[in-house]
Design a protein around this nucleic acid. Structure first.
Lengths: 248, 248
DNA sequence: CCGTATTTGTCCGTATGTATG
DNA sequence: ACATACATACGGACAAATACG
């Protein structure tokens, strides 16, 4: 046996949260998680340069674990490195985003196919609940309420599909799409009713167990999202800044 | 301008291949590439423990870059880390492999759909050439010749699809499947004729520009591969060792 | 079960390359 | 164009945890 069967209980004096976390996770993984959080939360925007020493000092650690986290996040597609210059938050161009949408469509279609075959009543109830809240957000044209629901819907569906590898790949692809300049990513309230209807049709197909239909609807839903992004860019080709949005 | 426009020519004394490589690529990326190569070539088999200091010494460098490469390869799914114990080549269970096949099927289907829409004559000619060599390998029941052709076929098709993000995701998934115990992975000569015919039908569909058919055939091809793996496992449930194969 | 050897996790110093006035 | 300041890439040392006799 390679592992000690009975782990010694941690003395109360050492049982701080940070200490207990370090028992299990090494520093590099914590740094990785934190940087990932900041990027996905929008605190670090695409193109931002990350400073090794600064980050290390801020977290009260040395630069080694920070560098290791950089390499992991680089592989994950969230950062890129220019040798001897530094690491930067990745920027996804419109052309890349178009390609990634095609990957997402394929994965979502598979999620739909599997979900239709495997969904159980309580999962269906949850999806119906999300749709209901989407309708509410749609009626009040509340984009800030709608978009978290959109994420929740697709996350829940991925879980229904019951395939961890598929869900993991799906999440990575969605994260990459978030690296397309955040401000413009289809935060247009006009699309909410249409999008809500598409989601409802998807749930209906999954509920019926119609795998082929769910697959097709999800594929089209993703490609429609891509088309809507392009439409939004045409109607507002100039990059709308945060200040401009707040003024409106 | 951030970069020096005219790079100083490298003095002959410093112009060794290794030196010039280091001008562009950092050590961690070279280590990463080398370890990845060893894993995919089968020199490092799933479950093998990697020793930081040993690898560093072997390559004549310090442990820092090795650790950074570990973190990248961990994120890529080729290694996994047990804290304070070490990093190991990842092992993919049969259950995981089944899930990954479903991801691969979705990506391959999308590759087929796009390839049918975008293929140009010279690409088609190349695919037909691979098929031709597959038939030859099939007639002589030469598995060692066939399996590289299989890889070449799918790689070429991914290129035809003309979507870099899709190709990158596809490669990662295929690499993961290679981490399912290598020895058993459908190295059965009986399946070669069937597999060849499936490939030929796929090329025909792509050549016709029939996206829907190419998509369906590729999906089924991948799922058939999965089924053939299961069949092979049933007929030989005991793990056939390298020695056993060589004796046969 | 205990002491020792090995290996990992982390930190720090230095050289090299880059940005800037 | 040059000198200076700064950030990164890498090496090396120390402490803690694990493996082994």
């Amino acid at each position: 046996m390679r592992r000690t069967p009975n782990k010694r209980p941690v003395p109360a004096s050492e049982a701080s949260a940070a200490f207990e976390l370090l028992r299990q996770k090494s520093l590099n993984s914590l740094v990785q998680r934190e940087i990932e959080r900041r990027i996905l939360a929008g605190e670090l925007t695409p193109g931002t340069k990350l400073n090794e020493a600064e980050l290390a000092a801020e977290m009260g650690i040395s630069r080694g674990p920070v560098r290791e986290a950089f390499r992991a996040l680089e592989q994950a597609g969230l950062l890129y490195t220019e040798k001897n210059r530094g690491v930067f938050v990745r920027q996804v161009s419109l052309e890349e985003a178009d390609e990634i949408f095609e990957v997402r469509a394929a994965l979502e279609a598979q999620i739909g196919r599997l979900a239709a075959a495997r969904i159980v009543p309580e999962q269906l109830q949850r999806l119906r609940g999300v749709i209901k809240r989407m309708h509410a957000a749609s009626r009040s044209r509340d984009a800030d309420a709608y978009f978290p629901l959109n994420i929740e819907f697709h996350e829940a569906l991925a879980e229904v599909a019951g395939n961890r590898a598929l869900a993991a790949n799906y999440r990575r692809v969605v994260n990459e799409l978030n690296l397309y300049r955040r401000e413009t990513l289809a935060r247009n309230a006009d699309i909410i009713p249409v999008s809500t209807q598409e989601h409802e049709a998807i749930v209906d197909a999954v509920a019926k167990g119609d795998a082929a239909l769910a697959e097709r609807l999800l594929y089209e839903h993703v490609m429609n999202s891509r088309a809507r992004l392009h439409l939004a860019l045409e109607s507002a080709p100039a990059h709308r800044t945060k200040a401009a949005r707040e003024a409106a």
